[in-house]
Design a protein around this nucleic acid. Structure first.
Length: 271
DNA sequence: CAGCGCCCCTGCCCGC
DNA sequence: TGCGGGCAGGGGCGCT
């Protein structure tokens, strides 16, 4: 479900109600996620203050004085603030009871998400240490992508969806970025010129920034920290628009499976 | 070691 | 109405 804009939207929504607040209690209703939720989580967090909440790629990092809770929303996860009178629904896995009377509630039907605990500095955690740069970081530029892609034959769409290259670009925004940059999703990453990578960097930033400003994309079930959908769906150019006219040339948009994921593109505008 | 499939899992939509 | 197949915002893991 959530790519960078949806995780960022979630972060911004929950930040005022979680950061610098104390966790009074933690209720784990269903510990089954991608990995089991640590059995000691409630004991570890009870009575502790949340120093900061940050995003790294598609992870949310809740930092405490004695360690960090890592949270990933996977494909179907959502996090929202509820009040105590709101009854839990099926697939509500965890409640964090806050000192302001609010409850932070994790919902994840497909269970591809994760809640982990680490006592070491979080950038050193094995799932985070090898991540590529943030798309809005200055080190993510045309020279970086050009250098990383030399002698690599994989499809450009798979390349930019690889979190070791750049974080946060998932299936929707990969298709959308490649459309804006005029690059065919199956083009070999190693054959793309520096100038075209410059366009791609700009396209990725433009799409992610616009999506964040719209509160993310809700295709089926994404909701922000307050239970509301995102509105970027109406701005999508190609995603899930097979057969519809290309916004640029009006030819029919096509769908192709690249790396086991649906990709949407215009065969005329993207080469 | 790069790169590709295979899974993990539930829900929903579509066609028969 | 019921059921099987396909597909879904991710990504770790185990092959070759």
């Amino acid at each position: 479900m959530p790519e960078l804009p949806e995780v960022e939207t979630t972060l911004r929504g929950i930040l005022p109600h979680t950061q610098q607040h104390i966790i009074n209690d933690v209720v784990v209703r269903d510990a089954r996620l991608r990995w089991p939720i640590p059995p000691q989580l409630a004991t570890t967090l009870r009575g502790r203050r949340v120093d900061t909440v940050q995003r790294r790629g598609k992870y949310l990092v809740f930092s405490f004085g004695h360690g960090h809770m890592l949270l990933h929303l996977g494909m179907s996860g959502s996090l929202r603030l509820v009040t105590a009178d709101e009854a839990p629904r099926p697939h509500d896995h965890v409640d964090w009871l806050l000192d302001n009377g609010r409850i932070l509630r994790l919902h994840d039907p497909r269970r591809f998400g994760a809640v982990l605990w680490t006592a070491e500095p979080w950038p050193q955690h094995e799932l985070l240490s090898a991540l590529g740069p943030e798309p809005f970081d200055a080190v993510f530029d045309a020279n970086y992508l050009f250098a990383k892609s030399r002698k690599r034959a994989l499809a450009i769409k798979n390349f930019i969806m690889d979190s070791h290259i750049v974080v946060g670009v998932g299936n929707i925004y990969a298709s959308e970025s490649l459309f804006l940059a005029g690059i065919h999703p199956q083009r070999e990453a190693g054959t793309i010129t520096r100038a075209r990578y410059q366009r791609l960097v700009e396209a990725i930033r433009q799409v992610l920034d616009a999506a964040i400003r719209q509160g993310g994309t809700t295709l089926r079930d994404f909701v922000n920290g307050h239970g509301q959908p995102g509105y970027f769906r109406q701005m999508l150019n190609v995603y899930e628009k097979e057969g519809m006219p290309c916004p640029r040339c009006a030819r029919r948009l096509r769908r192709l499976t690249v790396g086991q994921r649906s990709s949407y593109f215009c065969a005329h505008c993207q080469r």
